[in-house]
Amino acid sequence: MADRDSLVGPDSSGHGGLESRSLILHLAGVRKSYNLGTPIETEILHGIDLTLARGEFAALIGPSGSGKSTLLHILGLLERPTGGSLEVAGQDIATLDDARLTELRGRTLGFIFQFHHLLPGFSAIENVMMPTLIDRGRVDAEMRARALWLLDRVGLKDAADKRPSALSGGMQQRVAIARSLAMNPPLILADEPTGNLDTHTADDIFALMRDFNKDEGTAFLIVTHDPRLAGRCDRRIEMLDGYAHPAEQLFVLATNN
């Protein structure tokens, strides 16, 4: 809460024991270059300093090509940064090998993508159980109960056994939200989750994420182009040419929602 609006600069020292435990993300000078060491080397992220507290609900905005997705993939531990340091849930990822990284990703992070990305061969409930199945290696009744509860929360209890192809785009995105919450991760990264939905559906999806944030204390970092939705987040971070800036530092009042 103390860090809610902070954008930790390079000179900032405030991440002592207690405080760093309340941070879900801590980036210092994170860089990302592609084709490192070749003539076509391009640096996409030029040194990002950023912290995100547990339970925070933040928007990541910025023009197309500014590196939002790239940053999200790095935060999602799908790619390693080429410079700087990154702590996820208090763990310095530079100290983790690929296997530990995969494990940390599975337990700490949930993903929601623009193109919902459900597994087409599995029913809605199977999709929701998949992260837990990957983590535990097998299915049990408790997993199924949680998946059903999640589907109920996103209003799709009756569609549990339907394949994704039998669901509308909005419904698929709701399943994806339920799936991202299967392991009850402290942080969910969403890359334009409402990007290809109509305004009405987009509002629904956004409200759902907000609900989970309030009820479960799940932190969200949401990439969006929609200023309306960004305005309803607690905090906006703007990506511009590979740097992150705090957008106008306003606390969103409850009445704004």
Partner: peptide, 11 residues
């Protein structure tokens, strides 16, 4: 799909 599974924690 494989990419998604990896993102969900499958090694």
């Amino acid at each position: 799909e494989i990419g998604i599974l990896r993102a969900m924690g499958a090694s």
